[in-house]
Design a protein around this nucleic acid. Structure first.
Lengths: 220, 220
DNA sequence: CATCTATTCAATAATTTTGTTGAATAGTTA
DNA sequence: TAACTATTCAACAAAATTATTGAATAGATG
């Protein structure tokens, strides 16, 4: 085998993975599966695709070995094949945020619809947690909270925040976080909290990013 | 703008980057540019493409803002836009090596053509350097060596290794490194060194990977 | 400023990818 | 074991991507 044939083969194999990631729907699927296992129907619902199309994209990801499956009754649960898949996606997302100004612009413009939302980064959150100056809310669905959440976060799914927030003292700032930088659960939460007179901000990243950094987490 | 429209837009923008990386030729170009700036003609030569096709692929990478250009007389020199582009590529390459067994197999089979080549990883090299037990050879072209090399490596371009190796003492093991895991300069070097009676191994990774880890480097 | 070199562009054909639709299938359920 | 649910498959059309070829262009050169 010539050197040229060897390189063509190697880069050809690797492009199977990058091609699999080269579609917006599949990127959204990877981002979603970063939160845990989901069925085809759930994935279709979250991503706004017909089930057949969602399944087609999942077959592409499966063929590239980026996802794995498990059975749960009639449901097939799809998961990322490993944390390294999420980490690679996070690296690509960060790349996109640096080099594609349109990404930041789209996110920023959309967030303006929730009023002025301030973000803090993970390191700032660590500091605030140490100083015991804040209340930390995980506004993802309870199922995702139970699977894993930031240490000392309270479970406050966005759908239930209206009734939960009465129990929160106003003397502390509230920090909300959700699935990631493109998830707006935390924006909605901050908007609502501010409307009710709380000082509130969101964490810029999501739980999987925090966990990937090895920062303190808990389950259940 | 609805949440759905927002997500479609954001993932659509990000897929511009992943699409750009979704082609084997462009992956090879990114890998090559990890070694420093190259002209279109050089890139075409290294990757076995006609100049027009290489240029077409470079326009795709440029449009995704993954590469930048600089003029040098009549030549246009292409470079990666930043180290984070190489790091994202390295994460994807690592992903490919974990999930696509064919990649390892192709590399391993091809290397067998150079005889039994042993590899060591970066951490082992650090240890051996500290113990002063080895001679470290950078077998990339001198131009790349001058731009940056592993601290204490000698410049021994593969094309000149035949004449350089006479000056090497046989009492020490020789470690050769080159551009990366898919570059075979180091394999060729180890093969030749062994033929001439030296104990020799290659570093599994390349200079850009070593540098990305923050390990000691030098220039000139 | 004419000439040259390296590079890019435009047009075209072939290939690949994507979404849709309806049918088929793989397991589960009772 | 029949019926059901979730999922996948196959076929098709449309869109996107890629390689090739020859022409055009952007700067550099002397």
């Amino acid at each position: 085998m010539t050197k040229r044939a060897f390189k063509d083969k190697v880069y050809g194999e690797l492009s199977k993975i990058t091609k699999a990631m080269g579609n917006p729907h599949r990127l959204e699927i990877i981002d979603l599966l970063g939160q845990g296992p989901f069925s085809v129907e759930q994935i279709a619902n979250h991503t706004g695709m017909p089930v057949a199309n969602a399944s087609q994209h999942l077959q592409v990801l499966k063929s590239a070995k980026l996802v794995s499956i498990a059975r749960d009754g009639n449901f097939i649960l799809y998961s990322l094949a490993g944390e390294n898949v999420f980490n690679a996606w996070a690296a690509l997302r960060a790349l996109g945020m640096v080099y594609n100004a349109e990404v930041e612009k789209v996110v920023s413009d959309f967030r303006k619809g929730y009023g002025p939302i301030e973000s803090i980064d993970a390191e700032t959150l660590i500091d605030l947690l140490e100083k015991n100056k804040i209340i930390l809310l995980d506004v993802r669905p309870a199922e995702e909270y139970n699977r894993g959440h930031i240490h000392r976060a309270l479970c406050a799914p966005i759908a239930e925040l209206s009734s939960i927030l009465q129990t929160l003292p106003k003397s502390k700032t509230v920090i909300a976080y959700c699935r990631g930088p493109f998830c707006v659960f935390a924006d909605e939460a901050v908007s609502l909290l501010k409307k009710k007179g709380y000082k509130a901000q969101r964490l810029s990243e999501g739980f999987p990013d925090w966990a990937a950094k090895g920062y303190p987490i808990a389950t259940k």
